[in-house]
Nucleic acid binder design. Structure first.
Lengths: 336, 336
DNA sequence: TTGTATGCGTTATCAA
DNA sequence: TTGATAACGCATACAA
């Protein structure tokens, strides 16, 4: 069923059918009615491929690639980006690639699909996916405007929005010092070594300024996306009999929540026995008990800023790549 | 830059370029190399619209329409659907329409866009969006196989996966009776009146079987997607001086979390002073303090089942619509 | 207000 | 192994 069939059934030319669909005001009223009737009767709809081939236009779709949607952090990103994009008539589609993250072949196929399908006008990359050594070299294949959120600073050719992590650590240390803490532990999700090391570098390099202590054995690794892993890790730690730090600096709030619950379940008090600091400030952290002290990342702003950069590139593709840093803040609540 | 340009630059015909791209084994080795070189040099990629027009094939994309991504419930749905779809080479794109939910014109535009773009092979509708009176009549315009998760039972023409809500209430009442509770309050998100009424019907109709009490003034309305709203509502309630129920039945876990926190902040104990029961069992509920007693919806299975039905319809579009009910379970934890 | 004819970028058939 | 060419379904300039 194509435009020709409709034209024949309605006793008009294909041009008239096309007009009826795209510029109804240019068709005489009763012809329009007749054509529309035939269209409805046959449940006909235009072939989007032919339409776009004949007269290319924007698709109105933006895709946001997301490594693991299990962390609410990412949908706050979506929320931010969507709020800006929708103002300009774009729709945001979140493409979760969690399933393919550890499989190079599948990851390549994802890009391939993204490149072959032309259904979107631009791309927002989030998380550390583009640090993946299988993903990174493929990116040029996707010949569309794109922006990255929180990528590797070494990718200078990529437009990106970043978090000023150093400031976050600085604020945290300042708070810890004021509260009289000294012995700091760090728990990271450990997904991508380069990303983790970047954060650990900041954590170590500011240590001297505040006369705080982090021993090598106080750097712990857990899973970045499963509360359960963090819970079990902490539970084991508490039973180990090792000398433990006073404060646990968790590299995201999911980790902090698991850690807190393990501490409580073993009969300790927070922050009396152990203090916990998270990172991100996802919406749950405020309501958790104890409420979470955390390094708040301006998540929605991250999304909004990325969207604005992308919109810019969409209208002016030749803009030189830019990097925008957004500052985190420290939200002091009960856990520390 | 199109296939003709590449052909000219490589000194071959367009047919050869096309073959080089689609059936490289049918091209002589050095011709292939020469063509590929030109392609790389010019960052050329095939026009997906022309390609699909000339030889239509599947797009490998499935879109899942989601009313509000802020509730982790939905990404567990995504996770389930994705795990099945990815096995069959499909990619899942989550399309959050939160921004457009209360604006009929925008909602129509969403459908319009979905119908005009041909970039996906099928659709999964979630939540109560298709109950929206502006959305529902538009659905036939999207001429693609689709499945709904948890829709209105009156839509018999729509393939759907549903939760057996009545069983959930039954299990809850059984538990409450065993624990000796009698006076029950209900807090609903109140987004869609038809959906809410359906649940309230079950809640009321089973009351007699267990000799439990729900007064009309113990039915409270809050926001379905913001913990903050539920927190404030409960806070006001506790200060009101009204006679309150012993147990609060919350129609999703987000509501329950806000309610719990308000109870604690006012110095009451859970479940001693007030008990709370949630619904869904999102991943956070287990780690919340107190851990949440909740009616667990088999969320991932919901997603998986919807995906399987869709895959079926994709290969066999004329299958009659089916309805599958999945049973919830009651997870008893600390809050009740 | 409507119809005719051409082109959009690709694939596939057929012949060379 | 390659090339010429006819589709694919639609939009639009131009003519009527």
């Amino acid at each position: 069923m194509n435009i020709k069939d409709i034209a024949r059934k309605a006793g008009v030319s294909t041009a008239t059918v096309s007009r009826a669909l795209n510029n109804p005001e240019k068709v005489k009223k009763d012809t329009l009615e007749r054509v529309m009737h035939v269209i409805d009767d046959n449940q006909y709809s235009l072939n989007p491929y032919a339409r776009n081939l004949a007269s290319p236009g924007r698709t109105n779709n933006i895709v946001m690639v997301i490594p693991n949607l299990v962390n609410p952090f990412f949908f706050e990103l979506i929320k931010g980006a969507e709020s800006v994009l929708s103002e300009y008539g774009y729709y945001l589609h979140a493409h979760n690639i969690n399933q393919h993250l550890d499989n190079p072949k599948k990851l390549t196929a994802v890009i391939e699909n993204l490149g072959n399908e032309g259904f979107f006008d631009g791309l927002i990359l989030t998380g550390s996916i583009f640090l993946n050594r299988h993903f990174l070299p493929q990116i040029p294949k996707i010949n569309k405007p794109m922006v990255a959120i929180d990528p590797n600073p070494s990718n200078n050719e990529l437009d990106s929005v970043l978090v000023d992590e150093r400031t976050g650590i600085w604020l945290t240390y300042e708070h810890l010092k004021k509260k009289g803490y000294n012995r700091i532990g760090v728990i990271h999700g450990g997904y991508h070594i380069e990303l983790t090391n970047r954060k650990l570098d900041h954590i170590h390099s500011l240590l001297n300024d505040f006369d705080l202590t982090i021993k090598d054995e106080w750097i712990y690794e857990t899973s970045y996306d499963t509360i359960e892993h963090s819970y079990r890790m902490m539970d084991r730690l508490l039973q180990s009999g090792n000398t433990l730090p006073e404060v646990f600096l968790c590299l995201n709030d999911l980790i902090a929540i698991g850690v807190c619950r393990a501490i409580l379940d073993r009969g300790h008090q927070i922050p009396k026995d152990f203090a916990v600091i998270g990172s991100d400030d996802i919406s749950f952290s405020k309501y958790f008990n104890p409420s979470l002290t955390t390094i708040k990342v301006p998540t929605e702003d991250l999304g909004k800023t990325a969207a604005r950069i992308l919109l810019n590139k969409l209208t002016n593709p030749n803009l030189p790549p830019q990097r925008i840093y957004l500052p985190p803040t420290l939200i002091v609540r009960e856990s520390c």
